[in-house]
Design a protein around this nucleic acid. Structure first.
Lengths: 348, 348
DNA sequence: CCTCATATACTCAGAATGAGTATATGATAC
DNA sequence: GTATCATATACTCATTCTGAGTATATGAGG
C-alpha cells in the first residue's frame, strides 16, 4: 500500500514518474510481436502455424513470432513484416494490431522469474499460398484449434458431448472469491458464451469462449499455467489442439476480429484472388463465419452495396451455368460507410 | 540486410530467437500506460487532463499516465486502475485497451537515444465527477483539442477557414517518396477524411483526421517531432490545443472508438447516472457523436431495443411536461446482440 | 436433345427506418 | 384561475430494407 513508489506517485507530477521510478522496475520488459496470418484455402479458414519444441504440456504449434528490436525497427508493423518475411517467406499485405497481452503467468513469459514478456498480437489477411511456397510453417485449419467454432455442418457435436456437461459442472461449483465479485454468475456467462438454454450463438465471441474454457480448466493451456492444479493435463480430454505460450488466445482474438470486421469493412477481399465468382466469395465468407448464407440475398447485398464489379469474363465448368467473374471495386475504400458483407444466415 | 541477427532468424526455429537475440537489443523497452478517461458533463464531452511541465513546443496538457511495473502488477489493467486512482482519485469503472503505440520519433520517447518507450493506450468511461473531487487534473472538453470534431452547431467554421485551404495546399504539393508508394493520392485522402467535395463526414475517423493533419504539419506536435522542419511551430496557426508526448493521438483514438462503440454496444450508459430521462440520454449521445438526432425515433429505438426500463418516477421542472425517469436494463448485457444506440442524425 | 446442376433474375410479405403530426401536462405570466 | 408556453410522449405513414421464396438461363454430360 504505502510503498515508497506509491507515495512518490501522489506527490510528484506525472511526467516525473518515469524518471523517478527505479530503472530496475521498468526495464525488465521484452516485447514480442505475434502474427495471426489468416487465409482461406479450399473453403477452409487457415492460419500460418510454426512448429517448435514441445512445451511442458506437449504443445508444439505456435504462431510466427519474434522479438521487437527497438533499434532496428521504427514501428511495430515494420518489424513484424520484416521478420515474418524472413521466417516464413510470406510478404504480408493487410495487417492490423489486435491486442497487447501482458498477464503474468499466461505463458507470455517464463513465469514469475526473468523478464516479463509482453505480446503484441497482429492480424494479417492474405490470399492462400500453397505450402510449397512457404519457407517454414504450414497452413492449418483454425477449427483444428477451435473445433467448437466450426458451425459449417450445423452445431458441432463437441458442444453437446463434452463442453456442455463439463461447463455445467464447473458453473455449479462455487466460484472462487475472485469471481464472486463479478456481477454475472458462472451459469449466465456459460449460457451467453456458448448459447445454451436457448441463448443464441454469437460467432464473434471466440475469445470469450476460449477464456471461459481456460478459466474452467478445460483447455490444456490452463493446466500448464498452473490453473486447476488438482488434475494433470494428461487426464482431461483435450478441447482442440493446444498451442505454445498464449498463442491460442491470440488466434482466438484474431478469429473474433475477422468475423466481426468482414461485416462492416470490405476486408474479405484481402482473402480473395483478383477475380472470383460471387459463389466463391460467399463460400469464403461462410468459411469464416460458419453458417450457410442465403445465396440470392447474398448476391443482392454484395452487388447492391457496390462492393464488386463484373470483369466481363465468365468461369466455365462450374457444374452448371457459367458464373460471371467479379473483381473488388477498390473505390469503395474511398466511400463513406465502406461496408462489409452484412450477412444473416440462410435456413439450409 | 544480412546482419547477424537476420541470418540467425532464418536459420533457427522461432522459439529460440528470443533466447538468442542479444539481451541488450531487447531489454531497452519501457512500457507506459496511458488513460483517456472520458465523461460527459453538462452536455460537454470531457477527458481527464493532467497539466505538466511545458514540452519543447510549449504543450502542457496530457493524459494521466504512468509506467507499467511488471513486478508490481499482474495485468496492465490492474496497474492502470491502481495508479489512476493514486494520481487522480478516480476509481475507473469501464476500461478497455485501445492500441499500443511505439513509433520512434513520435514523442513516445526522447528521440533516438535512451530507452524506447512503448505506450499502451486505454479508454475509460465514467460518470462525470465534479472537479472538486479530483485529487489532480481537470475535466477538459475534448473539442478543445479537436475543434474540427465539434459538429453540434453544424459544420465547424474552422474547416472552411483554416483546414481546407491548408490541406489543399499540402495535397497539391508533390508527395514525398514514402507517400508516393501509397495507393491513394493525397487529394483523395483529404477528401475522404474531411468530407470535402461532397464526400460525407464520418464522425468515427477522428484518428485518421488527426494523423493527416500531423502528416501535413498542421498540428504543433508535428513540428515538435521534427516534421516539416522548414517552419517553426510558432509560425503556424495552432489547430486545437497540442498535448504532450503523443497523447493527442491517443485521445483521438479514444474519441473514435467511443463514437463507433456506442452504436453497437450499450456503453453510453457508463457515462450516465443511475436514473435519467430519455432526452438526457439523447443529449449525451449527441455530445459524443456531434449531430442532432431525431427525438421521436431516438426514443423508439432505445425503448424498442429494450435498453432501458422506467423507474416509475418522473422528473419535474423540465420546462414542460414532466419526463419519465429510466434506468439501464443491465440484462441486455446478457442478451445476444447487446445493441448500442444505433442512430441516424435528424434534420434540425 | 433431354436431364442435371448451378447461376441468375424476379416477387412478395413483413420489419425497420426516416420524417412527420397530434396530444399530454407541469410551469409561468397575467 | 386560465391562457400560454415548452417540453414530453403518442401515433401515423411512406419508403426502404430484409428474409425467403419461385422462376428462368445456360453449359455439361449422357
Amino acid at each position: 500500500m504505502n510503498s515508497p513508489t506509491e507515495l512518490r506517485r501522489s506527490a510528484v507530477s506525472a511526467d516525473r514518474i518515469v524518471a523517478l521510478t527505479p530503472r530496475s522496475e521498468l526495464a525488465s520488459v521484452e516485447i514480442g510481436l505475434n502474427a495471426a496470418i489468416v487465409a482461406v484455402a479450399n473453403n477452409e479458414p487457415v492460419a500460418l502455424i510454426i512448429r517448435g519444441e514441445p512445451d511442458v504440456a506437449g504443445a508444439t504449434d505456435g504462431l510466427p513470432f519474434g522479438p521487437f528490436s527497438p533499434r532496428e525497427h521504427r514501428t511495430f508493423e515494420i518489424g513484424l513484416r520484416d521478420w515474418v518475411h524472413a521466417q516464413t517467406g510470406v510478404e504480408l499485405g493487410y495487417a492490423e494490431q489486435l491486442y497487447t497481452f501482458g498477464d503474468r503467468g499466461r505463458s507470455t513469459d517464463s513465469g514469475d522469474v526473468g523478464p516479463r514478456v509482453v505480446s503484441i498480437g497482429y492480424l494479417a489477411l492474405t490470399e492462400a499460398k500453397s505450402s510449397l511456397e512457404l519457407a517454414r510453417g504450414s497452413w492449418n485449419s483454425w477449427y483444428y484449434y477451435f473445433p467448437w467454432e466450426d458451425w459449417r455442418q450445423g452445431r458441432p457435436a463437441i458442444l453437446e458431448t463434452v463442453i456442455e456437461p463439463r461447463l455445467r459442472d464447473w458453473a455449479s461449483r462455487p466460484a472462487t472469491p475472485v469471481s464472486s465479485t463479478q456481477p454475472v454468475s458462472r451459469q449466465e456467462r456459460v449460457r451467453i458464451c456458448f448459447g445454451f438454454d436457448g441463448a443464441s450463438w454469437d460467432e464473434e465471441k471466440v475469445l470469450e469462449r476460449f477464456e471461459l474454457l481456460y478459466e474452467a480448466g478445460l483447455v490444456d493451456e490452463a493446466a500448464r499455467d498452473g490453473r486447476d492444479s488438482a488434475k494433470t493435463w494428461q487426464e482431461r480430454p483435450r478441447l482442440g489442439t493446444p498451442m505454445r505460450f498464449d498463442h491460442r488466445r491470440i488466434l482466438a482474438t484474431a478469429i473474433g476480429r475477422v468475423r466481426a470486421k468482414i461485416k462492416y469493412r470490405p476486408v474479405i477481399f484481402e482473402l480473395m484472388p483478383g477475380e472470383f465468382t460471387l459463389y466463391e466469395l460467399q463460400r469464403t465468407v461462410e468459411a469464416i463465419l460458419g453458417p450457410h448464407l442465403h445465396k440470392q440475398n447474398f448476391r443482392r447485398l454484395v452487388e447492391g452495396a457496390g462492393l464488386v464489379e463484373p470483369t466481363g469474363e465468365v468461369r466455365m465448368r462450374t457444374g452448371g451455368r457459367p458464373a460471371k467473374l467479379f473483381r473488388f471495386r477498390r473505390e469503395v475504400l474511398l466511400e463513406r460507410p465502406a461496408p462489409g458483407v452484412r450477412v444473416k444466415p440462410g435456413k439450409s
